[in-house]
Amino acid sequence: MLSLLHLDGSARPGCSGEVPHGSHTRRLGARFVARWQQRRPGDRIVYRDLALTPPTHVDGRWIHAAFTPPAQRTPWMIERLSESDALIDELLGSPLVVMGVPMYNFGMPAPVKAWIDNIVRVGRTFGFDRARTGAPYWPMLADQGRRAVLLGARGDHDYDPGGRNAGDNLVEQGVMTPLRYMGITDVDRVAVEYDEFADARLAASIARAEAAVDALVDRLADQADARETAAAAMPA
């Protein structure tokens, strides 16, 4: 059984196409999970609505606690890091992470940034040692078969690599860079564009994104099935 972590970061409640002014990223995320459950009904889905219940932002007490060696942490430090620990445990328990991350003013929503700040943590998702040869830090989640799927939505268009607005797409690099820092380098991206135009171009973009989500689910589910078949065939 595989565990899938599904995160929604949109401030808009509900899915576009179902409620007025609903979220395109919630729509894509719900579609991904529904199709995944059809393909692999035995898998576990862990859901967190980052917009509805935003993670606590990192502050000085969090930093103090996180950079104190675990054996030296006082009760208040353990308590301050308890939310971070829970978020990291969810991530570590789910090799597939599906993230709905719309573009807000060229960047990610604040609750998504708060989630990232809570999970990028020394000793848990990345290592740090000044005495280490070469770079003093290293990813702790590398080579574990982890993958992330970023589902986006943009008001304008041409934010994909090579597009006229690619340099202003701070969302995907802002998410992928910390994921890579922890060791999650396999990332798939699908996005809806033209939201502010609200015309046929938006409708066509939604249709393309939904088709891309369906194809991505089928590809990743096929890969998961193949891995499980190969593992079952191995001698005990």
Rank of each mutant, 00 (worst) to 15 (best):
R147G: 01
G93P: 02
S23D: 01
L220V: 13
G183S: 00
L96T: 13
R146N: 08
P54F: 02
V190W: 01
R146E: 07
V58W: 04
W115G: 00
V213M: 04
A207E: 12
A71M: 10
A233S: 15
R35Q: 14
G14Y: 11
L28P: 07
P95C: 08
F67I: 01
S10K: 14
L151C: 05
R121F: 07
A135C: 10
H6C: 06
R146C: 05
R124P: 02
N118H: 14
K113A: 10
R40Q: 09
W36F: 04
N105W: 06
R44M: 12
A211D: 12
A71N: 13
P136M: 04
H6I: 03
R35F: 01
A226P: 02
L179S: 05
A211P: 01
L151M: 04
H157W: 15
G9T: 07
T125A: 11
R154L: 09
D222Q: 12
H6K: 10
F106T: 10
D129Q: 06
P139K: 00
R44C: 12
D218W: 00
G42V: 00
E193T: 14
D225G: 05
P136L: 00
P41W: 11
A209V: 13
A86F: 07
D89L: 08
D8I: 09
H57G: 13
D156Q: 12
G100Y: 04
A114L: 07
D89Y: 03
D129F: 05
M234Y: 01
A131K: 04
T229H: 15
D188G: 01
W76S: 14
G17Q: 03
R208D: 15
T125K: 10
A142V: 11
G17S: 03
F126D: 09
R12G: 12
V97S: 14
H21C: 08
I45R: 06
W138Q: 09
L92P: 00
V192L: 06
G17W: 03
R73M: 05
V217A: 04
A200R: 03
D143Q: 05
A230D: 14
A212L: 07
D158F: 00
L28H: 11
G183D: 03
A236D: 15
D222W: 00
T56Q: 15
A198E: 15
H157V: 09
P178T: 06
D222S: 14
D85I: 02
L170R: 11
I63E: 06
F197L: 13
H57E: 11
L92W: 09
